[in-house]
Structures are given as structure tokens and as C-alpha cells.
Design a protein around this nucleic acid. Structure first.
Length: 859
RNA sequence: GCGGGCGUGGUGAAAUUGGUAGACACGCUGGUUUUAGGUACCAGUGGCGCAAGCCGUGGGGGUUCAAGUCCCUCCGCCCGCACCA
């Protein structure tokens, strides 16, 4: 190219050129190859909302750097992309715009795919999947039938979280602060017949295996641990006076049994429900509890309330001790047995309740150094460790010994047993929605619930539905649900609920690995080759929901014989959010960043010139309008600039503030790199020329630095320290730019240095790197070029700068040969004038020498 | 309330096992080139001080020859869970 033609990089033309070239040569198409080590890198697939946002750009940039780096490093890299395509927004769009969810979704996918392609991501697009296509969900229906066979599925009439705005059920994990995770509506309790997956069967294993996930963030593992919420305690069965019935409670504090002063059951406990038939006050109370449910108001006031049922139970160790039974609003039906014994002295909730209803408060645990005679329980329960008192055979024992003693005695008399309990509850997967995967079962009046025979799969969603109004559209469909019973052939109806969309995302990683099977099930060899995912990348918001479901589902699929692994994601990286300043005008209306500009240091509205209030930096969101459209950025600066900015300043797990200045900085660097190669190509020696000998000092130092940079960047990329990798490459760039001289040694080292820069930057700025690689005279593609190796001999410095301290204070620096011996180092240090000055007339008591680092003179 | 994390220049951030605090950038200041703006290039940039030097990693205390890093304590911010018996 004529050198004078351009001094500025044309990102648009160049990026398209290389995208087409990679496409044409199928550079990222992969196949199973047992001769190569495999590496599966996956970013959490997007919901096809219609446009990509900066969070996507960050997520996919991170994944692409890993994928390209691993490919260059010699791995057979699987890097796929697809669409989490079922979900409520499509139905809402259908209601608002009179467009079918399928059409809306497919058009969104096409638009987003086109946007992603401008980013130059190294996906194997031949493996693209979309979860709303029968081609995908037919497998899921087959899996459900297999899960039924393995007894991992059951149907239960149960109290569910009902989102009144979405008209559907929510899983426990989808209720945040008593509100629907998507709609924000206050969640109500309703009783419905629902399909459940037995995730609790795997509770213990899901918990135990967390310790094996050593490439997951501790934070995520801890969140899952808390979510599973294992506790150890006991079940205790109380005899109900005058009835041939027992009341079973769960407790983690069996040691406090002698302090019990009442029992309480949840509003929806069978005992409460049966009493409600005769007692209006209990019935009203139950209804009230169900209304308030888990709402914020109920929790905030947290007033403990209850109704005395009139029933009484006998203390298992003391026939003379009779406890009243209450229905109480603070007892949860979903946890433990839905019933408790209350020990007010050692549980705050029980104490609040006891004070309100005038129940006895008996201390049975005394803290160390406290005289049991003087214990007074005021308004604070004592829940710490201590010594048992007022407790017959337990007196004098510590809490943990007492727990064991109580359980042993309960087991002896048949009144209870050791028990482990989990906070985790089974996963309700039924949703009363149209745009989801149909649950493949049929309800027959004579045969009951009948699985759809496998040869009738998939059960496809009907296209002609009425989405207006409330309720489940499939249920309202005139004909779809009518079908003969597969067993008796009499008229029957299909299940009209669809799966929770987390069902689709719980196994999509396996589908990517084995996309070729078109019947049902997996092509097992391919799945076994690629799985598990070596590096999974996505937002922290999925720390519990998606990641826990996927871990369970993988185990369930293993049990069904689909997979041989238990953990789907060997490595996990959770990226931070992309943030931006917020702007608002005088009326408090939010403004887009594109609507404001800086004038004389102040922010004003672009058109009106009116002053603009700059608010705090927050996650980019439509509601605050603090969004920057990736498409605009890529059109203006190119994908490489956007990618570089995403990687430069912050580590991946931290939040990243998008700033115009930062993008400009990245853009300037892109141009600087381009010019370094294209403005005067004659500065380089020929491709493949031999290393001239000897190198001048300056050239040799730069040659060594290039090797050192390869070592450092490789290590940084291995650890996902992308910001540091960028910094190291920029350092090398700076040194290359300031390298003077024009001899053959300089030309050779310049070529070596720039090729190193290009190769190291390849994963981060792939288009520019490919362009420069070609510009340096290479005829093969950079994406097919192995990662550069460094010479270990060359990466260590020949001499090092060592700090010289006096009494720990830095007083001088001295250049010493690397690994200089102690006496020589000390001698040189003491010879320094400023050191002598600092020592003055004091005696040197000792000297500390850390080779290549420090000499400390202690006086 | 319970559990966890974080606090380093004007800003984003670096800093192996405790061993030269602030790499690399952004911004800013001064200068050079350009018809001009932008670009590019050169120099400077933790604070105080003319300087020698002193002070500096949220505050206070401790261990150590040496502390951003370890220990104690207080303050502030963030995240997760939340009537889980």
C-alpha cells in the first residue's frame, strides 16, 4: 500500500475484511479430535431482546479473548453461541404490538446475530442453537420423561409463589424481597398442582461438591452454600393431649427442650387447617397470613402473632409439663415440619411471641462466668454457647454435648430422632405461560397422568393462540389440548403448563457440545469429549438461580445416562457490570449520554444548552437512560477499540465505568499501533531473517524485554488479568517507539518486537492484529499462528536495581548484578554517600539482604 | 439481624512468600507541529517544601530489620440471605 495514502486506521473496512476472511476459511469451526487437548469456553447465552447492550459486549469480549488465546496456545477450542429464546417479553411484545412471539423472537435473533458478528467473535456459528425451536426443546421433553422414570419428577398440590402481574408461578429463587424477580409485583401464596424436580435429593451432594469447584469465585460458592442452607438438629414428636395424634417439630436446638413453653404450627399446617373447619378465628387468621404472605410489610413489622388452638401437647421428658399449641404467623410451612417448639429464653422470635401472649420464659443455658441464680432474660434472648441449667439430666453439660444427649434420649423413648434439614426446596417448573416448552404429559380421566410416548415427541407449541387477556393461552386454545389418551385412547387433555425457562438454560451447554444428533438424546461421544465447560463466563446475578439449576440438572442427566460428568462448569468467571454516569435535566427527567455535552467544564444539554445535573454512576439501564449503544460505538471506532476499552482499565470481576475519554484513549492506541507498522514499513528487516550478531546494547535490551513481555502477558492471560496484560503490551509498545538507531540489528529487533505486540494483542484486538500481521509480510493468518514462546534464558534481567534502606527507610538505590552475593551487595551499599550520611556515627548492628530486592542497614 | 467483601493519587487501577507504593492508562499543566479544531510529538504530574528533606495505602494501636499486605480495634461503603426454628 502507498504509505502516504492514509495516516489513520479505517476500522470499518478492515474489520469487515477479516470477518469475511475468517468466515470464508471457517477458522473457528471445530470438531472432536482426541489427539488435541480440548478447551470449552462459554459465555452465558443471551435472551434475544433485540439489541445487544454493553454488558453483552463485555461478556463476549472476555470470552473471546480466552477462546482465541487458548486456540493459539494449541487447544482444540469450542466456543459457541446461541439464544435463550423462550420467555415472557415475547408474550408482552405480542400483546403490545400484535406480533407473534415466534416472529418477534426470530427477528430479534437475526438482529442480534448481525450485531454480534460486527464484534469479530470467534464463534463456531455452525453450532448456533435457539431454545424456542422444536429442534431444541424436543430433547428437553425427552429428558423430562427420563427424569420421570428416574423418580426425579413429581406432581404436588402445593402452596406456590404467585406473581399476580405475570399470572404465573415463580420458583423460590425467583422471589426477591417478596416480589417477582422480573415483574416486581408483590408475590401471593396460592395452592396449585405443579410439577417439581427433586433438586433436594441432590442437596447434600450439591453442597459437598462446592469444595471441588476451585476455579469458581468463593463468593458464588458461599452464596450457593447459604442457599442450600444445611442445618443439623432433631425431629421431636409431641403427644397431643386427648388425641391419638402427634405433633412433629424440627429444631436445631434440642438442648433447650426443657426451656420449651409452647408449640406453634404454620398457618397452612394440616393441624391448623383441620381446626379451621370449626374455628372461624383460626380460619380468618390463616387467610390473613396467606394474604400478607412474604410481603415486605409483613416482614418489616415482623410482629409475632398467633392464635391459641386450645390443643395441648405433653413434654417428652416430663409428663407433668403441658405446652399450649398455637397457630403462629412466623412459622413457615415450607421449612422443616411446619411446626416448632418455642423456647423463649434462647430464641428471639419465641421470646417476642412469649412476651406478647404471657408465656413462661425459662433460661436453660447460662453463659460462661454467669451465676445461674441471677439470670434474667429481658428483651434479648440468649443464643450463644454456654452450660445447661434447669434441665434435669442435662445440667452442667455444654450445648453441643447436651444436643447429643437429648437426641439419644429421644431415640430411646421413640419420641424423636437426629435430623438434617435444608433451606433448599424442590424446583417448581410449571409455568402458566404460552411462550415456553410444553410439558409432555397428558391427563386422562381414567388413566391419570400419562407421559407422551416418545415417538410422539416433540409436543409442539401451536402457532394460533390468543394472547390477549389474562390466564394461560394454551389452556384457552380451542383444540390444541384435546388428544386421545395414549393408553386407553379415550379423549384426554394435554398439560397446558410450560416449563420454567431456566429448564432450557440448565442443559444448553451440553447441546452445544453435541449438536449433530437429530433424534433424541445426545451424541454421547461428542458430549463426553467436550464437557465439562472449562471456562464459563457471565454475570454474578446468576450465582444461585441458573448455576445451581445447571449443577443439579447435570447430575440428573448423568443419572439418566446422558452424561458422564457431575459438574457442568469447571471454571467460572463472574464479570462486573458496565456502569455510566447518570444525567438529568431541571425537571428531573433522565437524559441519554448522547443528549449531553461538556462546555467549559460544565455539563449542558446538547440542543438547548441548559445545565444538566450529573448523578452518580450506576449500572447502565434503560430506566435511567445511562446507556451507550454498542452499535454506535462500533460504527464510530470499530470493534477492536470497544474490546480494548472493555479489557484495559478494570479487572473482569469489577464494575467498569464507561467513559468517552476512555474510549478515545483506546482509539488513539489503535491508531498508534496501526501507524507503527504501516507508515514506514522499511524500518523492518525481512520476514524470517536471521538474528544479527552481535546486537547493540539497546537492541539487546529490547529483545529481552520482548521475551519478558511474552512471559508476563501469557501469565496474565492464564489468570484472566486482562488489564495487566494490556498494560504490559503498552509498555513494550512505548519502548519500541523510543528505540533509536537504524542498523540491521535495530530493524531486526523492531520486527521481532512488533510481531510480539501483534501476537500478544491478537486475542484482544483480533482485526487490527490480523491486519498488522499481514502488513508485516506474513502470508498465513494470525488466527492460525501458534502463541509466541519465550526463551527462559532471556527473560531475567542481567542487572537489577536494589533498594538500600537504613532502618527500613529508603535512602538509595544501587544497580547490582543479578543474584549478587551478600557480601558484595553490602559492601556496595555501604559505599554509597547518602547511606553513610544516614548512618552518621552510629554503629551498624546488622544488615538484611534480600537478593535482587533490598539491602537494609540496621543501626 | 446473620453471612461475606472492600477502603491505595483528581480518576480507573498496579504492587510474588511481608521487601523500592502508585506500573499502565485517563485527566490535567507547559511546550512543539498544524490554516484551524482534533490528531501527533516532547516534558511534567501523590501531598508539603526553594531545597535538603518530611509526610503518605479509611482512623487508632500492635507484631517486625521491614506492613497496602499479618494481628487487634473503630469508622465508612458494597453485596448476598432474611420470621429457615
Amino acid at each position: 500500500m502507498p504509505a502516504a495514502q492514509a495516516t489513520r486506521y479505517n476500522a470499518k473496512v478492515t474489520e469487515q475484511k477479516w470477518q469475511q476472511e475468517w468466515d470464508r476459511l471457517e477458522s473457528f469451526r471445530v470438531f472432536e479430535d482426541s489427539a488435541l487437548p480440548k478447551y470449552y469456553v462459554l459465555e452465558m447465552f443471551p435472551y434475544p431482546s433485540g439489541r445487544i447492550h454493553m454488558g453483552h459486549v463485555r461478556n463476549y469480549t472476555l470470552g473471546d479473548v480466552v477462546a482465541r488465546y487458548k486456540k493459539a496456545a494449541g487447544y482444540n477450542v469450542l466456543h459457541p453461541m446461541g439464544w435463550d429464546a423462550f420467555g415472557l417479553p415475547a408474550e408482552n411484545a405480542a400483546k403490545e404490538n400484535k406480533v407473534h412471539p415466534a416472529k418477534w423472537t426470530r427477528e430479534n435473533i437475526a438482529a442480534m446475530r448481525a450485531q454480534l458478528k460486527t464484534m469479530g467473535l470467534s464463534y463456531d456459528w455452525s453450532r448456533e442453537i435457539s431454545t424456542c425451536e422444536p429442534e431444541y426443546y424436543k430433547h428437553e421433553q425427552k429428558m423430562f420423561l427420563d427424569l420421570m422414570r428416574e423418580n426425579l419428577v413429581y406432581r404436588k398440590e402445593s402452596w406456590v409463589n404467585w406473581d399476580p402481574l405475570e399470572d404465573t408461578v415463580l420458583a423460590n429463587e425467583q422471589v426477591i424481597d417478596g416480589r417477582g424477580w422480573r415483574s416486581g409485583a408483590l408475590v401471593e401464596k396460592r395452592k396449585l398442582s405443579q410439577w417439581f424436580l427433586r433438586i433436594t435429593d441432590y442437596g447434600e451432594e450439591l453442597l459437598a461438591a462446592l469444595s471441588t469447584l476451585n476455579r469458581w469465585p468463593d463468593r458464588v460458592r458461599l452464596m450457593q452454600e447459604n442457599w442450600i442452607g444445611r442445618s443439623e438438629g432433631a425431629h421431636i414428636r409431641f403427644d397431643i393431649m386427648g388425641r391419638d395424634e402427634k405433633l412433629e417439630v424440627y429444631t436445631t436446638r434440642p438442648d433447650t427442650l426443657f426451656g420449651a413453653s409452647f408449640c406453634a404450627v404454620a398457618a397452612n399446617h394440616p393441624l391448623a387447617l383441620s381446626l379451621a373447619e370449626k374455628r372461624d378465628d383460626i380460619r380468618d387468621f390463616i387467610q390473613e397470613c396467606n394474604r400478607s404472605g412474604t410481603s415486605e410489610a409483613a416482614i418489616e413489622t415482623a410482629e409475632k402473632r398467633g392464635i391459641d388452638t386450645g390443643l395441648e401437647v405433653r413434654h417428652p421428658f416430663d409428663d407433668n409439663k403441658i405446652l399450649p399449641v398455637y397457630v403462629a404467623n412466623f412459622v413457615l410451612m415450607e421449612y422443616g415440619t411446619g411446626a416448632i417448639f418455642g423456647c423463649p429464653a434462647h430464641d428471639q422470635r419465641d421470646l417476642d411471641f412469649a412476651r406478647k401472649y404471657g408465656l413462661p420464659v425459662v433460661a436453660v443455658v447460662a453463659g460462661k462466668d454467669i451465676d445461674p441464680e441471677t439470670i434474667v432474660i429481658g428483651n434479648d434472648a440468649y443464643s450463644d454457647d454456654g452450660v445447661l441449667i434447669n434441665s434435669h439430666f442435662l445440667n452442667g453439660l455444654d450445648v453441643s454435648t447436651a444436643k447429643a444427649a437429648v437426641i439419644d434420649r429421644l431415640e430411646e423413648i421413640g419420641a424423636g430422632s437426629r435430623a438434617i434439614n435444608y433451606r433448599l426446596r424442590d424446583w417448581g417448573v410449571s409455568r402458566q405461560r404460552y411462550w415456553g416448552c410444553p410439558i409432555p404429559v397428558i391427563h386422562c380421566l381414567s388413566c391419570g397422568i400419562v407421559p407422551v410416548p416418545e415417538d410422539q415427541l416433540p409436543v409442539e407449541l401451536p402457532e394460533d393462540v390468543d394472547l390477549s387477556g389474562a390466564g394461560n393461552p394454551l389452556d384457552k386454545h380451542p383444540t390444541w389440548k384435546q388428544t386421545p389418551c395414549p393408553i386407553c385412547a379415550r379423549p384426554a387433555v394435554r398439560e397446558t403448563d410450560t416449563f420454567d425457562t431456566f429448564f432450557e438454560s440448565s442443559w444448553y451447554f451440553a447441546r452445544f457440545a453435541a449438536p449433530h444428533s437429530d433424534s433424541v438424546g445426545f451424541e454421547k461421544a461428542a458430549a463426553d469429549y467436550w464437557l465439562p465447560v472449562d471456562q464459563y463466563i457471565g454475570g454474578i446475578e446468576h450465582a444461585v438461580l441458573h448455576l445451581l439449576y445447571s449443577r443439579f440438572f447435570t447430575r440428573a442427566l448423568k443419572q439418566c445416562g446422558y452424561l458422564k460428568i457431575s459438574e457442568p462448569f469447571a471454571g467460572l468467571m463472574t464479570q462486573g457490570m458496565v456502569c455510566h454516569r447518570t444525567f438529568s435535566d431541571e425537571t428531573g427527567r433522565w437524559l441519554f449520554p448522547a443528549e449531553v455535552k461538556q462546555k467549559d467544564g460544565a455539563w449542558v444539554h446538547k440542543d438547548t444548552g441548559q445545565a444538566v445535573t450529573v448523578g452518580r454512576t450506576e449500572k447502565m439501564s434503560k430506566s435511567k437512560r445511562n446507556v451507550v449503544d454498542p452499535e454506535t460505538i462500533i460504527a464510530t471506532y470499530g470493534a477492536d477499540t470497544a474490546r480494548l476499552f472493555m479489557l484495559s482499565d478494570s479487572p473482569p470481576d469489577r464494575d467498569l465505568e464507561w467513559t468517552d475519554a476512555g474510549v478515545e484513549g483506546a482509539w488513539r492506541y489503535v491508531n498508534r499501533l496501526w501507524r507503527s507498522v504501516f507508515t514506514n514499513p522499511e524500518q523492518f528487516s525481512d520476514v524470517g531473517a536471521a538474528l544479527p550478531c552481535p546486537l547493540s546494547d539497546e537492541a539487546r535490551s529490547l529483545y529481552r524485554m520482548s521475551h519478558r513481555t511474552i512471559a508476563e502477558v501469557s501469565r496474565d492471560l492464564d489468570r484472566f488479568h486482562f488489564n495487566k496484560a494490556v498494560a504490559r503490551v503498552r509498555e513494550l509498545t512505548n519502548s519500541l517507539d523510543s528505540l533509536k538507531g537504524g542498523g540491521p540489528d535495530t530493524a531486526w529487533v523492531k520486527r521481532f518486537g512488533w510481531e510480539t505486540v501483534v501476537q500478544l494483542m491478537g486475542p484482544m484486538m483480533p482485526h487490527l492484529a490480523e491486519e498488522m500481521w499481514q502488513g508485516l509480510g506474513h502470508e498465513t493468518l494470525l488466527v492460525d499462528t501458534p502463541w509466541p514462546e519465550y526463551d527462559p534464558e532471556l527473560i531475567s534481567e542481567e542487572s537489577v536495581e536494589v533498594a538500600v534502606q537504613v532502618n527500613g527507610k529508603l535512602r538509595a538505590k544501587v544497580i547490582l548484578p543479578k543474584d549478587c552475593d551478600q557480601s558484595a551487595a553490602e559492601k556496595q551499599a555501604l559505599a554509597i554517600e547518602s547511606i553513610q550520611k544516614a548512618i552518621k556515627d552510629k554503629t551498624v548492628r546488622k544488615m538484611i539482604y534480600v537478593p535482587n530486592r533490598i539491602v537494609n542497614v540496621v543501626v
